[in-house]
Nucleic acid binder design. Structure first.
Lengths: 189, 189
DNA sequence: CAGGATATGGAGATAATCTCCATTTGTCAA
DNA sequence: TTGACAAATGGAGATTATCTCCATATCCTG
C-alpha cells in the first residue's frame, strides 16, 4: 500500500517546519482560528508546499495529535510496569488531567477534532483506549475494580474533561470527575 | 439594555422559517457541512435576511440549542417535583442519554459548539448546569449522595458522552458512564 | 557532473462568506 | 381608508479564504 519512497531531505525539512509551527499554534489554542495559508507563511513555506504535505487542516492537526497520543501511551505502559494495577490506573487518569492542564490548546483542539468525526483521530483514540483498557483489565484481574464496566466509559469521562476545558473551575471539576470514576469503579463489597 | 421593539410580523415569520430549517439540519447532523448561504435558500429567504437574523453560523446553532436546553431543564424540574431526590437525579441523567440518542445530530453539534468556546452556549450550559446542581443538592440534602463532589463534575461526564457520540458502542458505554457516576456519587458508608 | 525525478513558491482560479441598498412590506396616526 | 414613515427584504457583487497549477529550483543517482 503505502510504498512511500523516502522523502527528499528538503521535503523532510519543510514538513518538520510545518509540524513545529502547527505544534505551537496548537498548544496556544489558535489552531482553528488561523487562516490555513498563514501556517505556510509562519513556517516559511509556500502554500503549495503546505497543501502537498497536509491536504487539509484536519490532516495537519492529526499529525500533531499523533505525537501527543504516542507520548501518553508510553506513559501508561510505564506506570503499568512499575505500580500495582489500581495505582497505575489512578495515576494515569490524573496524569491525563495534568497533561490537558499543561497543554491549554490541546483540550480544545481535541474536542474539535472529536466533533469532526475524523477517522485518524479515531485511530489515535483507539491507541489511547487500548492503553486504558489494559490498565482497567489489570485492575479487574487483581480484584480492585469491578468487572462489569467497559473501559470505553472511562474514555468518555476523559473526553468530557477535554471538551469542557474552558470552564472556570476546570481543574477542580476535572479532579472531581476522576474521583467519581475511580470510586464508581471500586469493586462493591 | 436589549430594548428590542417587537419584530414586525413578516420578520418573525422569516426568523421562524430559518429556525425550523436549522432545527432539521441540526438533527440530521449536517449543520456544519452545509454552505451557510444555503440555509437561506432552503428556508426560502434571501442571504441578507439570514445574516440580519443570525450574523454567524454559531449564532444560528445557539438559537436552536436554546430550545433544546429549555426542554431539558423543564424535564429536570418535572422529575424533581415528582420523585425522591436520588431517583430524580438518576432519571435525569438517563433521560439526557436518551435525548442524545434520539437526536443523532445534537451530540455532534454540541461538541462542535463546545469546542468553539461560544459564550451563549456557555450560558445555555449554565442553565442546564443549574438544573443538575439542584438535583444533586437535593440528593445531598436527603443524604443519598456524598457532599464533596461538585455538580460540575457530573456536567463534564455528560459532555464526554456527547463528545464521543460517534463511537460504535456509544449507547452501552454511555450507560456505563452514568452507572459509574451514580455509583461514585453514592454516599460512602 | 549530467540528467531525471522531486519538491518548491506564489500567482491566480475557485468557492465561501458577508455587505449594501433599491425595492417591498407592514404599521399606525389621522 | 389611506398616506407617510419605519422596518425588513433579496440577491448582485465585494471581500476573504481555500486550493490548484506549473515554471523554476533543488536534490539525488549513476
Amino acid at each position: 500500500m503505502t510504498a512511500n519512497r523516502p522523502l527528499r531531505v528538503d521535503a523532510q525539512r519543510k514538513r518538520e517546519a510545518l509540524l513545529a509551527t502547527a505544534q505551537e499554534v496548537f498548544d496556544a489554542g489558535d489552531f482553528f482560528d488561523l487562516r490555513f495559508d498563514d501556517f505556510a507563511r509562519l513556517a516559511g513555506v509556500g502554500a503549495g508546499t503546505l497543501y502537498r504535505h497536509f491536504p487539509t487542516r484536519e490532516a495537519l492537526a492529526e499529525a500533531v495529535y499523533h505525537g501527543e497520543v504516542a507520548a501518553l501511551c508510553d506513559r501508561a505502559r510505564q506506570l503499568q510496569a512499575t505500580l500495582p494495577a489500581a495505582e497505575a490506573l489512578a495515576g494515569f487518569l490524573r496524569d491525563m488531567v495534568d497533561h490537558m492542564d499543561a497543554h491549554q490548546g490541546l483540550a480544545r483542539t481535541l474536542a474539535t477534532l472529536m466533533a469532526s468525526g475524523s477517522s485518524t483521530i479515531a485511530e489515535g483514540g483507539r491507541a489511547l483506549e487500548r492503553a486504558v483498557t489494559d490498565l482497567v483489565a489489570a485492575a479487574v484481574q487483581d480484584g480492585t475494580v469491578r468487572d462489569d464496566v467497559d473501559a470505553g466509559a472511562v474514555m468518555m469521562a476523559l473526553h468530557g474533561i477535554g471538551a469542557a476545558h474552558d470552564r472556570p473551575a476546570w481543574r477542580a471539576e476535572a479532579d472531581g470527575v476522576i474521583s467519581l470514576v475511580l470510586d464508581g469503579l471500586r469493586r462493591p463489597v
